[in-house]
Design a protein around this nucleic acid. Sequence first.
DNA 1: TAGTTTCCATATTAATTTACTATGATTTTT
DNA 2: AAAAATCATAGTAAATTAATATGGAAACTA
Lengths: 142, 142
Amino acid sequence: MKISTKIRYGMRAMVELARSKREEPVMLGIIAKNQNLSEKYLEQLFTLLRNGGLVKSERGAKGGYRLAKDPDNITALEIFEAMNGPFELVDCSINPGSCKRSSECETIELWKELSDKIKETLSSKTLSDLAQKGKEPLDYSI
Amino acid sequence: MKISTKIRYGMRAMVELARSKREEPVMLGIIAKNQNLSEKYLEQLFTLLRNGGLVKSERGAKGGYRLAKDPDNITALEIFEAMNGPFELVDCSINPGSCKRSSECETIELWKELSDKIKETLSSKTLSDLAQKGKEPLDYSI
DNA sequence: TAGTTTCCATATTAATTTACTATGATTTTT
DNA sequence: AAAAATCATAGTAAATTAATATGGAAACTA
């Protein structure tokens, strides 16, 4: 059980956006360079963030991305779920039909409790919390 | 981020063992049948449990497996780690060299905290706790 | 002691998921 | 019209997962 790169990249990209002091939207090229990712791949990740309602995009030259909400109101769980879909450790906790043992299963409660703890922990952290760990705001001026 | 079948099967198999009221060791064939798994596959899973010091085996006819410790002294985390190796959500939390961004990473703390919460939750559950969820002890008499 | 029953060890494989790369269209500014 | 950016979708290589397959070794039983 590992955190996928997709989730880690998405989380870090959001922190970068939150640390930006630009008034203008931030181009993917900048973030891609800072995070050592290809711009094309990062585009896919930002599609997920956009679909999750966490960033807004502006197209064309001078376009880019900005946060869709105040970073105080964005939790790590939201970012996680934008990247990875609704959080669930086991399918049967949401859809009991996915496993025919679920009615008699002695371990389903364990996985439910663990899922709840994880969600609780992730939703207690805001993007502001994460962005403050970075030393200074990002300027992006050249 | 899902719990693998390997971990889930291992956890359930341990609960079955814990619920057994036999004095004799339990044969894999019984557990395989109850859990709808092939005996051959279950053998591999029990090798992991044995290497983890959680079960003891007896070979030959009348052989089988039994718990190596009192179920009060076996935690869900031990079972998890026997099946999946030492628990870590991200490599960089243990080996910072695995990611060259780790010194400046704003999210590493998040993953560490989450890892700790998960370990804490899993180690607070004993095999006894899990076994009690099952209605009655298993008899395996024919 | 021959045969059966059980666990032990390792190799192989099919399916799925992950982590991208590639191609090209669309929108906006200059 | 050209350039700069996002948008959409297809394709793919590598890794991981979830098994199956094959044969051996130990212990009990007739």
